[in-house]
């Protein structure tokens, strides 16, 4: 087995994630600014929640006046998938696993950090260290936080004198959600996606956008349960 990789090596390995996170975090900051959140509030969300898609959901729910408890439950439901990342990573590491500093590196165990770490440790002789994992987590975290600050500064109306740039910034969110959906989508998700879209349109027509998003999530989740049950029955 090779020498354990260092903290700077982990930081370097975070470069592809950081390059992907920064523009998405800028769109988050812009969206937060346009939704009336201050720069400090947007930065606080990115520093404390640090979970991309659920932060956009938080914006939609909080700006739409959803009940705080309902918002917390919905956001945690969306993030529950993170429960699986540390066990999957530690299991892939086998005898190389260490958890003494897990309190530190687990903070940054996002979808992309998890996927990158899993790819790195897939060969049985590949070395891994908690320092490397901390560097990987920190690089991604800094890109997310700094992108948010840049975006929130731009979203506060800096481009009002440039209507074409302002219009393009206004399309960042639809473009982002469409790209995220394409990246996450598998054939088995079709019922969930259809149910979520229809649920949103119906509920939003009566009760507004933030209720529409919650109803869409709920119906989409239920469609996923029904779809999985249907798959279990078929040969």
């Amino acid at each position: 087995m090779r020498a354990p990789p260092t903290f700077p090596a982990g930081l370097a390995a975070s470069a592809p994630i950081a390059l992907a996170y920064f523009p998405v975090a800028v769109s988050f900051g812009v969206a937060a600014g346009k939704a009336g959140f201050t720069l400090a509030e947007a930065a606080f969300m990115s520093l404390v929640i640090y979970s991309g898609a659920s932060q956009f959901l938080a914006l939609a729910l909080l700006a739409g006046g959803a009940a705080p408890l309902l918002a917390v439950v919905s956001l945690l439901a969306m993030n529950a998938r993170h429960l699986l990342y540390a066990p999957a990573l530690l299991r892939a590491l086998g005898p190389r696993a260490a958890t003494r500093r897990a309190w530190l590196w687990a903070y940054g165990l996002t979808d992309e950090v998890f996927a990158t770490a899993l790819g790195k440790v897939a060969p049985a002789d590949a070395a891994w260290s908690e320092r490397w994992q901390t560097g990987l987590s920190l690089g991604a975290y800094l890109a997310w936080a700094s992108g948010t600050v840049v975006g929130a500064a731009l979203g506060g109306g800096a481009f009002e004198r440039f209507p074409v740039v302002d219009a393009a910034l206004g399309f960042l969110l639809p473009a982002l959600f469409l790209s995220l959906l394409l990246a996450m989508y598998e054939r088995r998700h079709l019922p969930a996606v259809m149910a979520a879209a229809l649920g949103f349109l119906l509920a939003a027509a009566f009760w507004g956008a933030s209720t529409g998003i919650l109803v869409g999530m709920l119906l989409g989740g239920l469609a996923g349960v029904l779809g999985a049950a249907g798959e279990g029955r078929s040969p």
Binding site: A53, S54, F56, L57, A60, S74, A77, M78, A80, R81, L173, P174, F177, L178, L180, L181, M184, Y185, H189, A192, V193, A195, A196, A197, G199, F200, L201, A204, A209, G212, I213, G216, M217, L219, G220, G221, A223, G224, V225, G227, A228
Partner: peptide, 15 residues
């Protein structure tokens, strides 16, 4: 839980 994330993104996209 496996569907709720993709459903949330779909609802956010339509919104």
């Amino acid at each position: 839980l496996a569907s709720v994330g993709v459903a949330a993104v779909a609802a956010l996209l339509v919104a």
